[in-house]
Write a protein that binds this DNA or RNA. Structure first.
Lengths: 344, 344
DNA sequence: GTGAAAGCGCTAACAC
DNA sequence: GTGTTAGCGCTTTCAC
């Protein structure tokens, strides 16, 4: 059985190639009766459009590129982050019969702009979902802009581009977590900050400050240690905090890897979580559920965010209207076992 | 700047389109001097072949499809598994300028064969990397075979197909782990077996027996408890083993989930790991590094396996020689904190 | 609303 | 070794 082409369908339905094309692409200007005839023919021949042919004939391929920094290229964990972004993007792609091309890369690579330029030229994606921290890097953003390919940035720190950006309410939800900790009676709530260049992560620190203030607690530099999002930096930061004469009774880490590291340090120091120390994280990685005690954290709607990004890229084609704004998908607190009332 | 096409390059180099094509595709029958001229022209014009055009003109797209069961679709953990496969496949793809299309799916889906058939027809991949447990499902294998698309199976239990399969040396490396435990002085080394229907996992039990023998230790049914790969069955098995009058001094579990459960049980029983009990697992899941004490385990060379798979798919094109065999990529022991010398 | 013609930029088959 | 000639199967004009 040789594959059916658009011509076969056109012939069977007694219409022209173009009409079939219209039906397949859900374009207007087809009478309902004609449409049905064509659809019937498509069914009998079990016709599937050849993507390669489509791609060549149109200005770009029916394909969305998801570009992200791949931590596992130089560090190990946080694959859940990647998986969830892929899942969301895939959902949007499948709905519209787009393919997904993934392009993990190293944000430290000097030639990243060239690399991405080449990707765009070769694969000609209909749109690009650009994940943080790449979405903050002006060199990258500019190099994509230069190609004219529509793109959506995920969690960009600053909003310089005219393109749509999708963010979560890092700052507000971090304030919420801080207020929650304060509501448990904690007065000395410490914060392990994340990588400075990651703007969204920086917002978590601001949210922590907001939360303190909203709870009537004073912010103090002493309660903040700098990490870099890695498990190792979490170990280090937690040690610094917990070995003080008056250690904090709660530690809020800017991501889960560092929060889990904090639990580990507490354990090694004989500090009981949550009865002697409350620990909260951010991201809700798979591990958060698996550690003991399970981690109170914030669930980033990564999958939803990337889905919305891909959706808008795909829709944008039909609309022609570029949204030019920031869309917020709210995060939610996941209260688990690692947080509890202040020790007496 | 409008994109350079193959014609532009041909003109600048003073050769025909086809010669440029030969150079780009590294085909033979081009004189060195000609090749250089063409390469120079490519450089000056910074020409990049348009994938869509290539794909249409050739029988299939320059693209490898990675098809795997997506546990996170209905269960939570093991995203590391997916990421590592993606990484390996990507490495091979980038070397040869192929793109990677990912197709996570649910192995329980009734229409999976149709779904994959549609994927192949639409995207026309040059080859397919089929991950376990899909690689064991004859319905899937047959539906791919029917399309004539070359594919490579990862860790298939049985080898029915004539296509290449890539596996790891479960049995040999399990023997190695057992010998390692014996070399630490352990005499009573217990084994928590995995799900019986999973062939690769069953091989681990055989390897354990081999290892005992090679170390001059006697195998005894008493030292083996049956698990089913789940954390829960690990808890159960560990309890059985550790509550004996003469408990083992080392426990080797057929996978990491059961090994982590064993550590948990030891902890709850006040048995110190590794000073009183050594624990080893298999798989090197992310959690292995994150539990305390971190787990000695066996790292499946997933990334290498999928890389080899994609490589052979890409090469196979040029060779025309289908390998028709099973290739073994050896696994490696990851010695961490959960194993140590026998207690006195 | 529908159709005819003209490519998209490359590779394949075969000539030379 | 190299060039020529046809398409690959669609989408895009632009007629009607």
């Amino acid at each position: 059985m040789t594959k059916a082409t658009i011509d076969d369908v056109a012939e069977l339905a007694g219409v022209s190639m173009k009409t079939v094309s219209r039906v397949v692409n859900q374009e207007p200007n087809v009478r309902a009766a004609t449409r049905e005839k064509v659809e019937a023919a498509i069914k009998t021949l079990s016709y599937r459009p050849n993507q390669s042919a489509r791609n060549l004939a149109s200005l770009h391929a029916h394909l969305i590129a998801l570009i992200y920094d791949d931590p596992s290229a130089y560090d190990i964990p946080s694959s859940g982050y990647v998986i969830r972004m892929q899942q969301g993007t895939l959902r949007a792609c499948r709905k519209a019969d787009y393919e997904l091309l993934i392009h993990p890369c190293n944000y430290r690579n000097k030639d990243l702009d060239t690399e991405i330029g080449a990707l765009i030229e070769q694969a000609r994606p209909a749109g690009i979902v650009l994940a943080a921290p790449l979405s903050n890097m002006s060199k990258i953003v500019r190099s994509i802009e230069a190609t004219g390919t529509p793109f959506v940035r995920l969690s960009p720190g600053a909003q310089r581009s005219k393109q749509l950006a999708i963010s979560t309410n890092d700052r507000e939800v971090s304030a919420e977590m801080t207020r929650y900790l304060a509501s448990l009676g904690h007065q000395r709530i410490a914060f392990i900050a994340g990588h400075k260049s990651h703007k969204a992560v920086a917002n978590r620190l601001l949210g922590y400050q907001d939360g303190l203030e909203q709870s009537g607690l004073r912010f103090s530099e002493d309660l903040v240690v700098q990490g870099d999002n890695s498990f190792g930096s979490g170990l280090e930061g937690a040690h610094k905090l917990l070995e003080r004469k008056t250690p904090p009774t709660a530690i809020f880490a800017a991501n889960d890897d560092m929060a889990v590291a904090t639990i580990r340090v507490a354990d090694s120091l004989g500090i009981k979580v949550p009865s002697q120390l409350s620990v909260a994280g951010f991201d809700d990685i798979a591990l958060a559920r698996q550690v003991f005690p399970s981690l109170t954290t914030i669930r980033q709607p990564l999958s939803k965010m990337s889905e919305r990004a891909a959706e808008s890229l795909i829709k944008g084609k039909n609309n022609g209207s570029s949204d030019t704004e920031v869309e917020i998908v709210p995060a939610t607190l996941m209260i688990r076992e690692s947080t509890g009332p202040t020790p007496d």
